[in-house]
């Protein structure tokens, strides 16, 4: 090999790596310009009045209080339903089933459920919960629809979390005479907990931003009052943003409101992500030292 060949190889490598670096920076640039643009335009709209007041004047003034409460209701409702079922399902798949056709089938179905577009969940929720079961457009119907959407995320993360627990823990516990259930409750789950909680938080993020599944199951265009029962309709943040940025009566005048709503949505996701990372790091450390 001549010296020239080597230097040419080096040059090719340098060029290729610079292209990769540049494109990666592009990806970062895109993200930061989206976030930066919306935060820059909208952050001054967000203040205490914006968060705590009802919308006024055809949604061009006032706040987004009912939409925030609506989204919180939907998060709570969907998680009450999806979290226990999802975690139990994850535990069952990872701890109780062997690598059989049954397990593979369940995993395949979970993966499929995760890949179904959110608008199809919306159609399904409308046809089953709203029409067939007669819940009408309500928090109940919307929460169940969103819960189904969050299920595969929770099952997956629970499974992954349990899988990463060292088998030594399980064997030690069983060798000491603990039953399988005791082992799961006292040993496996606590070790897997940080990752399960991370999955839980991330699925809250997913649920709070989804629009398509709630379009026909719960979301109200404009409803300046708070829900009094689970059979009420509510406003929700993502749907509110959609409405005021596309079909409001005064699109130009409600721009400020739209920016503000987008900022609130981004902040929710940002904060949830930070908490998830924090939990992962904090609890991860705690259990490692034991």
């Amino acid at each position: 090999m001549t010296k020239l060949d080597i230097s040419r190889k080096r040059l090719a490598e340098a060029i290729a790596f610079w292209i990769f670096r540049l494109l990666s920076l592009c990806v970062m640039g895109i993200l930061f310009s989206i976030l930066g643009f919306i935060l820059y335009k909208g952050i001054h709209v967000v203040n205490w009045d914006f968060i705590s007041k009802m919308p006024e004047d055809g949604m061009t003034k006032g706040g987004i209080y009912p939409a925030i409460i609506g989204t919180l209701c939907l998060i709570a409702g969907s998680m009450i339903f999806a979290f226990p079922i999802g975690v139990m399902s994850g535990i069952y798949i990872n701890e109780y089933t062997k690598d059989s056709w049954y397990r593979r089938f369940v995993q395949l179905m979970t993966a499929n459920l995760a890949g179904i577009p959110s608008i199809v969940f919306g159609l399904f929720g409308m046809s089953l919960f709203v029409n067939k079961l007669g819940f009408g457009d309500s928090i109940l119907a919307g929460s169940l629809t969103l819960g189904l959407l969050a299920l595969p995320v929770i099952i997956r993360t629970t499974e992954e979390a349990l899988k990463s627990v060292d088998d030594g823990y399980r064997q030690a516990s069983l060798a000491l005479g603990a039953t399988k259930l005791q082992t799961i409750r006292r040993v496996t789950l606590p070790v897997a907990l940080p990752n399960i909680i991370t999955g839980f938080i991330l699925s809250i993020g997913r649920v709070s931003g989804e629009t398509a599944p709630i379009l026909f199951t719960v979301a109200a265009y404009f409803l300046p009052k708070l829900p009094s029962s689970i059979h009420d309709q509510v406003m929700a943040l993502p749907y509110h943003l959609y409405v005021i940025s596309t079909s409001g009566t005064n699109i130009n005048e409600s721009r400020g409101m739209a920016y503000g709503t987008a900022v609130v949505l981004i902040l929710i996701v940002l904060i949830l992500n930070l908490i998830a990372n924090g939990v992962r790091r904090y609890l991860g450390k705690k259990y490692k030292t034991h």
Binding site: I38, R255, L265
Partner: peptide, 24 residues
């Protein structure tokens, strides 16, 4: 640095992307 940023990119609601697309 990259990993959490990309997770964040995945977590942003689709309406926010739509809104950004609409105005920019």
């Amino acid at each position: 640095i990259f990993k959490p940023v990309i997770e964040l990119l995945a977590g942003i609601p689709s309406v926010v992307y739509g809104f950004f697309g609409l105005i920019v």
